[in-house]
Design a protein around this nucleic acid. Structure first.
Lengths: 364, 364
DNA sequence: GGCATAAATCGAAACGTTTTGGATTGTGCA
DNA sequence: TGCACAATCCAAAACGTTTCGATTTATGCC
C-alpha cells in the first residue's frame, strides 16, 4: 500500500503546540476556540497540506462521505447510454462541493432492485443512495424509509410517506405531445409505455388520457403499447401494432431507444417515419442520431442538470432538510428540430461550457 | 445516520466466549487457531450476520477495498457511451468476487488527466485506479509509478518501467482492415486517427503503414485524418478530406462516432456510404445503429469482457503479482455483417447470459 | 490578593479491526 | 512430578478523528 498522507491531526497539533482536540475543533470553527487560534490552525493546515482521513472520520462519526448511484445494467450497458453518465457527471460534480464522492454500482439483470440497495446499507458503502426506475410501491423506497437510509429517487412513487425525488413532468409532456399531434390532424395516436410497472408510465397514461378527453377523442385501449425499452423489443411491439392496425398515424414513444425501434418497425412495414408517414415523438436525455430525424419531436431531459438537482437534494437531505421540501418535477424541453438542436449542442460544445449544454431552460 | 450493523467482532467474541483477537484470527484462517475454533467462529459469524466494517479494516490496514475508474466526461457524457458502462459492469462484478467495490469518477473537460488521479491518491479514495486514453509518456502512469499507486491502464504507454495494462490489438486490427480493403480493390484508403496524442493512434498508424508496405501501396500523408472523435468533429474532418481528394474510396475510422461522422460527411458530398460508395470500417465497443450498415465492417471490442480483464489484473496487482505479468493485448472481433451481429446480440439478450454477450471469441 | 465566572484548552475514550508479543494450557518425556 | 516445548488463546496498542467533560487560564469585581 502507498504511504499514508504524512500530515494528520497529531503532526499538525505538534507543529502548532496545541492539543489534537483544539486543532480538530478549530478546523470545524468550534465556537469555544479563540478566533486567533482558528485562523492559525487553518493556515497551518493549508500550508502543510493537511487532508482529513475519511476513514478516521467514518469510524468516529459513521459518515462515509460517499453517495451511491445505481444503474440498471441491461438497460444501459448493452444498448447505449441514455444519459446516465451525463447524470453521473452532474451528481458527482455537485457532491464534490460538499466533499462527497459518488460511487456507481451496477444492478445486473439477475439481481433484484432491492438487493443492491440493501448491500449498500449493510456494507456501509455510502451515506445515501440514488436510484431510478421507481415503481408506485417501490420496495427500495420502502426499505430506505423503514431503515432511515437517506435516498433520492429519480422518478416518483405513490407512497404516502414523503420522500425526496427528482422527476420529469411526464404527464405534462405526453399531454403536450398529444395536443400537438392532434393540432396537426392526427386522430389515431398510439402511446408507447415502458413495461415494468414504473410510476412514470402511469403519469404518461394520465397525460395521454387527459389530452384525449380534452380533445374529445375516444380512448381506445388498443392504442396503448407496452414493452421493454430496448430497440429490439420496441421494434417488435410497434410491428405488432402496425400490423394489426394500419390506421395509426402517430406514436408517442417512451424513450429514444423505442423511437428507434418504432422507426425500424415502420420501415419494415413500408411506412416512412416522419411528418408524412408515421409521426414519431419521444422522450429522453441523449439526443443522439436516430434513423430518421425530420418530423421527429423530442422531449429532452438534460441529464447533467438532472444530476445536479439530485445531488443537491441529497446534500440537503443529509443536512436535515425535510424530504417534503425536496421533491422536484422538472419540465421537459421540447425539441422540434433535432438536427438543429444537435447543431446547437455542437456549437456549445465548442464553447465547452457545461452549464450551457443543459439548454436554455436550465433553471437549476 | 442509520444505526451501525449490530454485529461486530466484540459481540461475536462475547457470543463465543473468545477474545476479539482469536475471532479475528479465526475468520482469516489464522494457522495458530485450532480448526475446531475456526469452524465454530465462522459458523457463528455467518448465522449472526457478521460483516466486517470496511472503515475499521481501512483504519488499521490502510486498504479502502475500493478501486476507482475514471471516465472522460466530454467524450462519454455528451455524445453517448462508447461502452464505458458495459466496462463498468464487467469491472465491478469481477471486483466484487474479492470484496472490492468500484468508484466511478468523471474527469471533466477543465481538469487535467493527472488531477483526478492525484485526488484519488491524496484523499485515499481507492486502493488503485483504472484510466484510459493513455499517451506514450502518460503523466498519470508516471505519477502512479513514482508513488507506487497501483493502476491498470486501458491502453498502453511507451514508458520503460513495466506496468499493468489491457489494450486491444490496434496495429493488427488496422492491418487487417487495410488488407481486406485492398483485397476488395481499394487503393485510396484513408486512416482516421484520434487527436490527442494517444498511444493507440501510433499503433493504428503502424498497422496502416505496415499493411501499405506489404501491399506495395504508397504511403500518402494526405490519407491520414486526425480529429477529435465526436460525430461533429469527425464529420468536419472527413468533409475536408473528401472535398480535397475525391479519389478516396475507403476510410478506416477510429470509433463508431467517427464512423457516423464519416457517413454524414459522405452523404453531404453526395457519396453513398457502403460497399458501392465510400467504404467505411471502424472500431468500438458499442454496436449501436449507424446511418448505414450495409458494407460496413466493425472491429468490436466487448467492453464487458474488457472490464473483467481489467479488474482481474487489478486484483492480481494488489495481490502482489508483478506488473510485467499483467499486460494483455486483446484481439478485436471483426463484424462484417453488423445487422446480423446485432440480431445475434439480440437473441443472446433474450437468453440473458452476460458471458455470451461478449461474443464467441471471448477468451477472458 | 482572593473569589467567581467565563473563555479557552486539554485528556481520555470511543469507533472496528488487525497484529505483535505475551500468557496460558496441553502434551510428551525423564 | 517437574521440565521443556508446542499449541492455543489473549491483552494491548495502533490506525485518525471526534466529542464529552474536566482542567487551566484569563478577566472582572470586591
Amino acid at each position: 500500500m502507498p504511504a499514508r498522507p504524512r500530515i494528520n491531526l497529531k503532526t499538525l497539533a505538534e507543529y502548532l503546540g496545541l492539543s489534537i482536540t483544539t486543532v480538530s475543533r478549530a478546523l470545524k470553527d468550534g465556537p469555544e476556540v479563540k478566533p486567533d487560534t482558528v485562523a492559525r490552525v487553518k493556515e497551518a493546515a493549508a500550508s502543510l497540506g493537511y487532508l482529513p482521513d475519511a476513514g478516521g472520520v467514518y469510524l468516529r462519526t459513521g459518515r462515509t462521505m460517499k453517495i451511491c448511484s445505481i444503474f440498471y445494467a441491461p438497460e444501459v450497458a448493452d444498448y447505449g447510454d441514455a444519459g446516465f453518465l451525463a447524470q453521473v457527471e452532474g451528481v458527482s460534480r455537485t457532491l464534490e462541493t460538499d466533499s462527497y464522492n459518488l460511487i456507481v454500482l451496477a444492478q445486473t439483470a439477475n439481481q433484484s432492485p432491492l438487493e443492491t440497495v440493501r448491500r449498500v446499507l449493510q456494507q456501509r458503502l455510502a451515506d445515501g443512495v440514488i436510484f431510478s426506475r421507481t415503481t408506485p410501491m417501490d420496495e427500495r423506497a420502502r426499505f430506505c424509509l423503514e431503515f432511515k437510509f437517506p435516498f433520492v429517487s429519480f422518478g416518483r412513487t405513490e407512497l404516502h410517506s414523503p420522500h425526496a425525488f427528482v422527476d420529469h413532468d411526464d404527464e405534462g409532456g405526453v399531454y403536450d405531445a398529444v395536443m400537438r399531434l392532434a393540432a396537426d390532424g392526427h386522430k389515431r395516436i398510439a402511446l408507447f409505455n415502458p413495461a415494468g410497472g414504473m410510476t412514470y408510465a402511469g403519469f404518461r397514461l394520465r397525460g395521454y388520457q387527459r389530452a384525449l378527453a380534452d380533445l374529445g377523442l375516444p380512448w381506445d385501449r388498443s392504442m396503448l403499447v407496452t414493452s421493454p425499452l430496448s430497440v429490439w423489443a420496441s421494434q417488435d411491439a410497434v410491428r405488432d401494432l402496425l400490423t394489426r392496425d394500419t390506421s395509426v398515424t402517430a406514436i408517442v414513444c417512451a424513450n429514444q431507444l423505442s423511437m428507434s425501434g418504432a422507426m425500424e418497425a415502420a420501415l419494415e412495414q413500408g411506412i416512412e417515419p416522419g411528418r408524412d408517414g408515421l409521426r414519431i415523438i419521444g422522450f429522453g436525455g441523449m439526443p443522439f442520431r436516430m434513423p430518421f430525424e425530420q418530423g421527429v419531436t423530442y422531449y429532452y431531459q438534460p441529464q447533467r442538470r438532472d444530476g445536479e438537482v439530485l445531488a443537491r437534494h441529497m446534500l440537503a437531505l443529509l443536512g436535515g432538510e425535510p424530504a417534503e421540501n425536496l421533491q422536484t418535477v422538472l419540465p421537459y424541453q421540447r425539441i422540434d428540430d433535432l438536427r438543429r438542436f444537435r447543431l446547437d449542442l455542437r456549437e456549445r460544445a465548442v464553447g465547452r461550457s457545461a452549464a450551457d449544454i443543459n439548454g436554455p431552460t436550465a433553471s437549476g
